[in-house]
Design a protein around this nucleic acid. Structure first.
Length: 729
DNA sequence: ATCTCCCGCCACCAT
DNA sequence: ATGGTGGCGGGAGAT
């Protein structure tokens, strides 16, 4: 989608309910909130007081959008959130109202319970159901304030399948006011929705609604990622303790502490993955919590578990509202055991295998967009938007954007890319086989036969590739980015995933096993973005030339790798770039997963032998001589680890590290290393630290699939997961 | 008693 | 310093 939505800010404000309500949204509302807070807050006196206090002060504060206890300010009828909504809706424009009504009234019932609840609530609201007027009744029940219900209301505000042309802006403030809740709650919802790409964050306080259009694809991607992550194994085995569990935990320590890693978004995606890879499509919170804890936490204290479960409940409530899962009451033993069953689309696995395989220029925009939207997780991310179409959310409320600095490449999430990227195979999920790569460069796309070798042995690589030892990409077009990806489907990349399920187990197990050492680094969105900035090369911390980064990986690692990309930001004078790819590198001593292509830093090429890393890789069996053809553009040659490479000399570009990068031998250790010398962009210490973080810990999973554009804008640190951040940097 | 999960404090982090 | 985000866990309602 285009970012036109961004420009819609004006529109937005116009259509906002609040505005309609008239009066500077805050002003009146605040007054109203007065009555509310008291009744509504069942809270302790203290809370009430604070509320009041807040309230008093709020009037003046109105100016800034600081979250105001929206709950209180919206409607006088505290105990019925729905009432607030209705009121607001009625005040809204006909469109909104209609849509709203339609939604609420006709939306398929999710879970009986929910539906019923809602209905009841509606009734209550509508009629003067004051039968239950006792004070106790007046106070909204816990259920009425549930996140799930709130989410339903939220969803009711937007069409499941909005017209593609225009994005629907979502102002958190507005929606919070509209729903009569505090903003904090909206974050909970939006984060989960974002994890499924139902919405995308465009800027501060501004999201764009995408609806369920991309849901199937998103789910497919998640399914893929889940399998690559080895979740299916864990799901199968876990019913006690997963052997891998402990393993996992081990090496993540460094990364695990970061805030984003515990992100609700990520957790949500993982949670969904669990369902998707589960044969029974059911997941117990207990299992999910354990699995998730293992991944992200060092310690698994009971409190951690409890916290995790809390979050899972939050997520589950939203997913339930989305009709994707439903709760099953399974009582066993002496206690009830919360179990959720997937009731959403489940056929995605077989659907898109072939179509998406090749991403043509034309497709890039859409596909890329989709991926990009995939949470902020780099794994889902994709292509940066072309400078041209980029929309800055500058208009976005309170989000200043840097003007043109980032002009060349804006990976801001906001910018839904239009194709500026050349993308070769998308990913395993998308591209079934390590097939020929289709390179799309904005306007033109060329197919580059890639020799997939041993590492890809499992792949049905056809002879077609063999004939082309090298992929030669003559001067890259204007395209800002070039991404080459040789699709290797770890799982044997069968078209039918079902079929693989059993087959993959071994691999998955293997991956899982080793995941401990690399997981933290895999596919981490944030790390990608941040690291990208720091280091042009995918190598984790070190400079592109860091040997460690390029060193051959061990077999295990090799096994884990599933995707390889060649990622070349074509910004600063890369147009003339010529690219060579070794077609059939032998894996001789090289771990099966060695990369088939390299990036070579021109200086190196020109002058002496490639740096150790590159050198090593090259020598390792990739008989690959660097032709003089290579342009002066800086090249980075990456051998083994994975396939993301970037040019070094684009300041604006931040390369971004692929998940595979984590595979470097040093593993975790690398993480600790200080900032790469080459950091192009100033990085805060924190960022650096972040770099090693892992998002998905899925080798080659999404991370590999979607490469976050080299330079993702960095939004708030917390948003770094985002695909694109508004401000470039 | 245990499950759910609301609520809002407050750490984070970009500005 | 400011303000948007959102992790987190206390603690209370629901079962």
């Amino acid at each position: 989608m285009e970012m036109k939505c961004l420009t819609l800010k004006d529109l937005l404000s116009v259509r906002t309910l609040v505005n309609k309500t008239g009066s500077g949204d805050t002003g009146n509302t605040n007054d109203q909130k007065e009555n509310i807070c008291m009744d509504r807050r069942k809270m302790t006196p203290l809370k009430c007081e604070s509320v009041n206090g807040f309230k008093r002060v709020s009037s003046p504060d109105i100016t800034h959008m600081t979250p105001i206890k929206l709950t209180e300010r919206v409607h006088p009828d505290p105990w019925t959130p729905t009432a607030n909504l209705k009121m607001l809706i009625s005040a809204a424009s006909p469109d909104i109202r209609d849509r709203e009504m339609k939604k609420t009234l006709f939306r398929p019932i999710e879970n009986e319970e929910k539906a019923i609840e809602e209905d009841e609530e509606e009734e209550l609201d509508d009629s003067c159901q004051y039968e239950a007027l006792d004070d106790s009744e007046r106070r909204p029940s816990r259920k009425q304030k549930s996140l799930g219900l709130l989410c339903q209301k939220f969803l009711a505000l937007y069409p499941d399948y909005p017209e593609t042309s225009e994005g629907i802006n979502i102002s958190l403030d507005e929606v919070a006011a509209r729903l009569g809740v505090e903003r904090r709650r909206i974050y909970d919802i939006v984060n989960v929705l974002e994890s499924l790409m139902l919405v995308s964050r465009m800027a501060k306080n501004l999201y764009v609604w995408h609806g369920r259009s991309a849901l199937p694809q998103t789910l497919q991607d998640l399914h893929q990622a889940g399998r690559e992550q080895g979740y299916h194994l864990q799901m199968d085995q876990r019913e006690g303790s997963c052997p891998y569990a402990t393993h996992h935990t081990q090496n993540t320590h460094a990364a695990s502490s970061r805030r984003k890693d515990k992100s609700l978004r990520i957790m949500s995606q993982k949670f969904v993955m669990l369902f998707l890879v589960s044969k029974t499509r059911t997941v117990t919170l207990d299992t999910a919590a354990k699995i998730l804890i293992e991944e992200g936490q060092d310690e698994s204290s009971h409190s951690k578990y409890k916290t995790k479960v809390r979050r899972l409940y939050d997520i589950a409530n939203v997913l339930t509202s989305l009709n994707l899962i439903k709760k099953l009451q399974v009582r066993e033993e002496k206690s009830r055991k919360p179990v959720f069953k997937w009731i959403g689309p489940a056929d995605f696995h077989s659907s898109c295998d072939s179509d998406d395989l090749r991403v043509s220029a034309a497709q890039v925009s859409t596909t890329g967009e989709r991926r990009e939207k995939m949470t902020r997780h780099s794994s889902f991310q994709v292509i940066p938007a072309p400078p041209v179409n980029q929309r800055r959310i500058s208009s976005a409320p309170s989000t200043p954007h840097r003007p043109s600095t980032d002009e060349p490449v804006d990976y801001s999430r906001k910018s839904v890319n239009t194709s500026a990227v050349c993308r070769l195979q998308f990913g395993d999920s998308v591209q079934p086989s390590g097939s020929p790569v289709v390179l799309s460069t904005g306007q033109a796309s060329l197919a580059v036969p890639l020799q997939t070798d041993v590492p890809y042995a499992s792949l049905p690589v056809s002879a077609q590739f063999t004939s082309h030892p090298l992929a030669y990409l003559p001067g890259l077009p204007q395209t800002p980015l070039l991404m080459v990806y040789s699709g290797h489907v770890p799982d044997g990349h069968l078209k039918k995933r079902e079929r693989q399920e059993e087959e993959d187990d071994d691999q998955a197990a293997k991956r899982n096993k080793r995941s401990a050492s690399i997981e933290s680094e895999m596919c981490e969105t944030e790390s990608l973005s941040s690291s990208a900035r720091r280091s042009p090369v995918c190598s984790r911390e070190g400079s592109p030339w860091d040997e460690a980064s390029f060193g051959p990986m061990n077999e295990e690692d090799a096994g884990v790798l599933s995707s390889h990309y060649l990622y070349v930001p074509n910004t600063a004078g890369l147009n003339g770039l010529n690219f060579l790819m070794p077609a059939g590198h032998t894996q001789g001593g090289v771990p099966a997963v060695a990369m088939p292509y390299f990036l070579v830093h021109s200086p190196l090429i020109a002058g002496a032998a490639p740096t150790s890393g590159a050198e090593g890789a090259a020598s390792s069996g990739l008989g690959f001589s660097v032709p003089t053809v290579l342009s002066p553009a800086h090249f980075v040659m990456a051998g083994g680890a994975f396939g993301v490479v970037e040019t070094l000399n684009s300041p604006e570009h931040h390369g971004h590290r692929l998940p595979a990068a984590t595979l470097s031998p040093q593993g975790p250790r690398a993480q600790e290393s200080p900032q790469p010398a080459q950091t192009q962009t100033p990085v805060t210490p924190k960022e650096a630290a972040v770099g090693s973080k892992s998002f998905f810990e899925t080798p080659g999973a999404f991370g590999s699939l979607s490469t976050p554009p080299a330079a993702r804008k960095r939004g708030s640190a917390q948003r770094r997961l985002d695909i694109g951040h508004a401000s470039a940097n």
